[in-house]
Simulated assay, not measured.
Amino acid sequence: MGSGGHTPSSDGHASRADGSGHRVPEGQAPEEYGDHRGRGDHDEHDHRSRWPLVAAAGAAGLYGGVAISIFGDVTDLLPSVIGIALAVVGAIVLLAGVAGWVGQAFLPPARGPQGSPTSRESYVSTTLLFLATDVSTFGALFVYYFFVRIGTWPPEELPPLLGSLVIVNTAILVASSVTFHYAHEALEDDDRRRFLGLLGATLVLGLVFLAGQAYEYYEFVAAEGFTLTSGVFGTAFFGLTGLHGFHVALGVGAIAVLCWRALRGHYGPDRDTSVATVSLYWHFVDAVWLVLVLVLYVGASV
């Protein structure tokens, strides 16, 4: 008799071996039965995602390469081509890490039970680690800005920064964080209709924020003549806001994937790993924007 043979179970029903020595009722998949011991071990092994770390390493190479390139142009101590090459390699690794992360965590159908709690915790913990590396990325640019403030202030190229547009845009981004929070709560309460509505509202608010930032850039460049090359403050301003805008664009793309999957019923109270990780990322982006507004927009105006 082979290991895949059919034998009667103790309750009189036909059963078969699941490949790990456990008996499974006939017609039922191994992962749908029992205490999931074999499946839990499999999930714990397969779902420890390394893609966030790959993306973080790529981001470090990209930003470090840009910094080396600028440093080389200013000081002539290093050829700027080294920085450019490092930035290109970093960008490729970053995109590969993001693509692998999305493909592994967000795109599989995942209509069945989520799996072991360990796999969910693994995704959440690696997302937090990725965000911790992002804090240092933004921190480096903030340090650059503070060095700018130590010099002659205000610089001649400083335009009026704090206006109604940035206030409205900030309110929009904060509102999107609130809608995302309550969308996740609705999912945990198994309220699918409310979850879809709030998640869709989050996506729309994120797109509106990006449109508002693009319009702000247009006003600065076309009306004020304020660009990335407008002195050290221009470099700091567009570097910080551009980096944040890039993060918002990535977040909007991730939320769009969530909406696409939510419409197909891929999520539930016990299937929320990708919703939880994207939510962490989005709240992080929101918090960074509030700090950026206080330091850059308000701080530059006082």
Rank of each mutant, 00 (worst) to 15 (best):
L162C: 12
T227I: 09
V166T: 13
L173F: 13
G225Q: 01
H181C: 09
H244W: 10
T170D: 04
T229Y: 12
R193M: 05
A211I: 08
T241E: 05
P160L: 09
Y144D: 13
H244A: 06
T179P: 09
F209R: 00
L161R: 02
E216V: 05
E157N: 12
F147S: 13
G200M: 03
F220Q: 05
V208I: 11
G239E: 12
G234L: 03
G206N: 01
E185Y: 08
L141G: 14
F226C: 01
R192C: 00
G251L: 03
F238I: 08
F146I: 09
R149W: 10
E188D: 13
L203Y: 10
L196A: 10
I167D: 07
A201G: 04
V248H: 07
I167A: 15
L162F: 15
F146L: 14
T227N: 09
R192H: 06
G163F: 08
P155G: 08
G231C: 03
A175M: 06
L198G: 08
F142L: 11
I172M: 05
N169Q: 10
G200L: 03
G242N: 07
A211Y: 11
V174A: 13
H184Q: 14
F246Q: 05
L198F: 07
E185C: 08
V221Q: 09
F209V: 02
F237Q: 08
L198P: 00
S230F: 06
L207D: 08
